[in-house]
Measured scan of single mutants.
Amino acid sequence: ATNIVGKVKWYNSTKNFGFIEQDNGGKDVFVHKSAVDAAGLHSLEEGQDVIFDLEEKQGKAYAVNLRIK
């Protein structure tokens, strides 16, 4: 899925991951530091509006192509 809109539920910059809540009511999506770095960001803030693509690997969904809304 592409261009999914959501809000950062939480992001832990020490542990380098967090979760994004989808605006469409879907399951929360894992986001890793690598996606944050690829977006040219240092971190994510709770409540921040983002747009992302959804990829699945080994049955787990995660956010890629992250951008600030």
Rank of each mutant, 00 (worst) to 15 (best):
E55C: 04
V29G: 01
G6I: 01
K7T: 06
K69M: 04
N3S: 06
K60M: 13
D28W: 06
W10P: 00
I4F: 06
D28L: 07
V64D: 05
V36K: 04
V36A: 05
Q48M: 09
V36C: 04
S13C: 05
G40A: 07
N12H: 12
V31R: 00
I20R: 00
K60N: 09
A38C: 04
Q48V: 14
I68F: 07
V50T: 05
L66M: 06
A63E: 00
F17Y: 14
V8C: 04
A39Y: 03
G59K: 08
Y11A: 01
G47S: 08
G47E: 06
N3Y: 07
G18D: 00
E46A: 15
D53C: 03
N12E: 07
F52C: 03
S34Y: 10
L44F: 07
A35N: 05
I68D: 14
D23T: 15
D37P: 02
I20P: 00
K27M: 08
T14K: 10
S13T: 14
Y62A: 09
H42Y: 14
S34F: 13
V36I: 09
I68V: 09
L41M: 08
G40W: 05
R67S: 11
S34A: 15
S13W: 09
F17L: 03
N16Q: 14
A63N: 00
I68G: 07
K69L: 07
V31K: 00
Q48R: 08
K9P: 00
Q48L: 13
I68C: 05
K27H: 12
N24K: 14
Q48S: 11
K27A: 10
V29N: 02
L41K: 10
V5I: 07
K69V: 04
S34N: 14
L44Q: 01
E46W: 12
T2F: 14
D37C: 06
Q22A: 11
E56R: 08
I20N: 00
N3V: 04
Y11I: 03
G59D: 11
N16W: 08
L41Q: 12
K60F: 09
V29W: 07
Y62R: 11
K7E: 03
L66T: 01
Q48I: 13
